[in-house]
Every structure is written in structure tokens, then in C-alpha cells.
Simulated scan of single mutants.
Amino acid sequence: MRDARKETGKPVHLTETSDLSPSTVLDDFRLDAGSYVLWAQATDQDGGTLHWTPSRDNDIDWEQVGATTKWPDRLVKVNTVTKDFTVRDELYGLGQFAKYLAPGDVRLDSSATENGIRNVVYRSRNGAHVAVLGNNAGTDSRVRVVVGGQKFVVTVPANSFATYRWKGYGGRDR
């Protein structure tokens, strides 16, 4: 992805992917991915895909699609009988990217894995910084974050993701 961006000046957009690992998303963003769009992440209790449109008038045999397309362990499972739902734990790690990053944010170069902590860092349009840190280790780990002369030390809990936002020089927090 990084080579493609260098050659074309344009980011690679990952669409219709089904990898639910927040670690994969972090790695792909570190490699200059411009977006990460998950595919068919809401299913019914049987693993069938849910179609949220009121009409299905596009010459597709939806009954056949429902009978043959089963993804039983996606991100969100909606029980269409009881009207409740469950979510996988990955939703919370993935949410670090969805909640704190916005179109127009620019990825900054950042260090490689340190003390088991992987990272991706962005500067927002208003000058604030956002760092998403992932700790896949079974123990808490301390890491130092340094951007443009600003620095702080944090402990990232075991097997978790954490997001830190701070004002950049001359910027305002969002």
C-alpha cells in the first residue's frame, strides 16, 4: 500500500474486507491505507446477511442468497425473532478508529512497535493529534509517545486498544 501511494500519490482504500482484527486495521493504516470498510458485518441469528432496504426489486433471488450465504460469526448479530443483538469484542477496538479519526486527518510517521505496543498517529485538520495504540500482549505495557517535542508516558492495558488525543502546536482539540 505504501508503494502504491508513493507511485500514484493516492491512498489505497480497503473495501469489502472481512478481517475483524483491530490489529490488522492498525497495521493497514500504518501502511498508508486511506480507509477500511468492513463487509457484511451485521447478520441474523442464523448467520444470514441482513438487508435493510424495504424493497428488493433488483432481479436478485434474495431467498437463494439467504439460503446459501451464511456468516455465523460476524461483528453484530441481530436476532430477528427476539429483537435483541450481540456484538463481538472486536467492535470496541475497531471503534477507536471510527470514533477518533475523521476524513482529512493525515497519518504521521511513527515509531515501530515498542514494549509490545503498536501504534498509528494522525494529525487532524485543526492541528490536534490522535494516537491509536494497540497492546496484544498479556500484560500491561508502558510506552512513551513523542510528537513534535510534546511527550507523555502511558500504560496501555493488556490485550486492548487505547486512543489518546492532544492539542498540537497552535492547534485546538477537537
Rank of each mutant, 00 (worst) to 15 (best):
A4S: 12
E7M: 13
E7G: 11
T8K: 05
T8E: 10
G9F: 01
G9R: 00
P11C: 12
P11T: 02
V12A: 03
V12I: 14
H13K: 07
T15F: 03
T15Q: 12
T15L: 10
D19T: 06
S23F: 03
L26A: 04
F29Q: 00
F29T: 00
R30Q: 12
D32L: 08
D32Q: 06
A33G: 11
G34C: 09
S35Q: 07
Y36L: 11
Y36P: 04
Y36T: 08
L38K: 14
L38Q: 04
A40P: 10
A42N: 03
T43C: 02
Q45F: 10
G47M: 02
G48Q: 15
L50M: 05
H51T: 14
W52D: 14
R56W: 12
D57P: 02
D59Y: 07
I60C: 05
D61F: 06
W62P: 04
E63S: 03
V65A: 09
V65C: 04
G66Q: 13
A67P: 08
T68E: 09
T69L: 11
K70M: 11
V76E: 01
V78N: 04
K83H: 06
T86P: 00
D89H: 05
E90Y: 13
G93E: 07
G95P: 08
F97K: 01
L101T: 11
G104K: 10
D105V: 15
V106E: 08
V106F: 02
L108E: 06
D109L: 11
S111L: 09
S111E: 12
A112Y: 10
E114F: 13
N115M: 05
I117C: 03
I117M: 02
R118W: 09
N119G: 10
R123H: 08
S124C: 04
S124P: 03
R125V: 10
G127L: 07
A128E: 00
H129V: 02
A131R: 05
A131I: 03
V132D: 01
L133S: 01
G134E: 09
G134I: 13
G134T: 12
D140G: 02
S141Y: 05
S141A: 06
V143Q: 05
R144P: 06
V145A: 11
V145R: 15
V153Q: 04
V154N: 07
T155P: 08
T155G: 12
V156R: 00
V156N: 00
A158W: 05
N159I: 14
T163H: 07
T163S: 10
Y164P: 01
R165M: 15
K167H: 04
G171V: 08
R172S: 11
D173Q: 09
